[in-house]
Write a protein that binds this DNA or RNA. Structure first.
Lengths: 245, 245
DNA sequence: TGCGGAATTTCGGCATACCTAAATTTACAA
DNA sequence: TTGTAAATTTAGGTATGCCGAAATTCCGCA
């Protein structure tokens, strides 16, 4: 696939490791453009720092990343292409497992994590077609198109909403199965209308009003968990305006 | 999963290589009980003989195979269990890809070969359920059940049928995409009724009558290809009797 | 019976991707 | 400005699976 890979016989970008590194580097910058440090990479990948140094050298050799010693890593356009391909695979797999095979949204992450290295482009495209070419996965994350472009909706972290603000759940981190099950139990899912009521004194649970019917629930979300829920408020996104709840 | 694996910390039977070796060893004995030599294994797996020696030692350490130096390899009951698990995964994947995602039966083999090392038991079981728990794959190969048992239908190689004998296509080797496409084009598939008419002089193409309507076709199958098509003649198989064409 | 070729095993090596421990570099703070 | 702690890289090592080349073993046939 990658020209860089072709140019360097012996090097290949189809190793699961390379794919994981590139995907994780991308993930760090998907919603904010923070520099990706070696230590951050090591922590996320659960490998030693020295392993990261080695693999990043390999990414550079493959033309997938730029890296100056003692500096953060960045993807090249080629690396970004590969990353978006992997993200597409991951999110389409998750969507497929949920919609076609009855998985819960808390069960799909690990399965997709393994399969994404193995599925062919053909299979991914057929799954996409079967699903009607969805543009977001069960957690609300946008699915890159086959040509390697992605549209990021402008959503806000729940905890940053001012009191009284309304919106719809636009995205929920898929990293925490416990949170996903909790939200399922509370009947909060993608597009659920919520209103921010405030938080209990001294940093207690966030309180949000759920549903247009006006049923009030208290969500037992610490800051940590609240940071995993995004809400679309204004809802402007690539020219399409989403209404408030 | 495997007790042997549990008993030997550090050894694991979940490597793709181990799975491949065990599956190939099983394949050699699925339809005939021939001894599996190291050289035969090496040829099938496309690795050097010395690699086979090494990996077979590992299989023995894992309790998956028995092997005395300079003798053929055999699976232990534990190895057979793993092999049947892999075969189940492979054949269910093929069936799923054909029935649910529109793959041709000539396209599924390689895809399944990769995915079988990655799919979880959960995913396999859900695919099986979605398919109504099929008992054979698109090529007619029996699918082992989740408890690790398999029923082998008694079918005969096409070329061994006497002239005039009738039957139904029961199984077609999935190893040759060209043959599969050819048969598709000729509208010959699983369960197609065929009658053996004979072969052209001097070992030419096999001639078979296809379909109960009596349309006569000449199949351009050399002995090599004919050996890849099996026909159910008498049709007795585990107490269920299949009628002739 | 013994000899030769084929099958098998042993041996030393290579690539990937990981590790720990020991340098090294960087950046901030006194 | 310099020292020190944190981040990063280097160095040396491990496990897996593969290889080719060189022994070794086996078996049939003369």
């Amino acid at each position: 696939m990658s020209p860089a890979a072709r140019n360097s016989p012996g090097l290949s970008s189809d190793s699961a490791s390379v794919q994981d590194y590139v995907k994780v580097i991308y993930a760090f910058t998907e919603w904010q453009d923070k520099p990706v440090t070696m230590t951050a990479l090591a922590a996320r990948l659960k490998v030693a720092n020295s392993s990261v140094t080695e693999m990043v050298r390999k990414l550079v050799d493959l033309g997938l990343a730029n890296h100056k010693p003692y500096n953060p890593v960045e993807l090249t356009p080629e690396g970004l292409r590969l990353a978006l391909l992997m993200v597409r695979r991951h999110r389409l797999l998750e969507t497929y497992l949920v919609h076609e095979l009855g998985y819960g949204w808390d069960e799909v992450h690990n399965e997709a994590e393994l399969l994404e290295h193995t599925v062919s482009d053909t299979l991914v495209d057929r799954m996409s077609a079967r699903l009607g070419h969805p543009d977001r996965d069960p957690h609300g994350d946008p699915i890159p198109s086959a040509d390697g472009t992605i549209e990021l909706p402008a959503a806000h972290v729940l905890s940053t909403l001012d009191e009284g603000h309304q919106g719809r759940v636009a995205r929920i981190s898929d990293a925490n199965p416990h949170l996903l099950r909790y939200l399922s139990d509370e009947e909060i899912r993608l597009d659920t209308a919520v209103t921010m009521l405030g938080r209990k004194p001294f940093g207690g649970a966030l309180t949000v009003q759920v549903g247009s019917g006006g049923r009030v629930r208290e969500l037992d979300l610490g800051d940590e968990l609240a940071a995993s829920v995004w809400v679309m408020t204004e809802g402007r996104h690539e020219g399409c305006t989403l209404e408030k709840s």
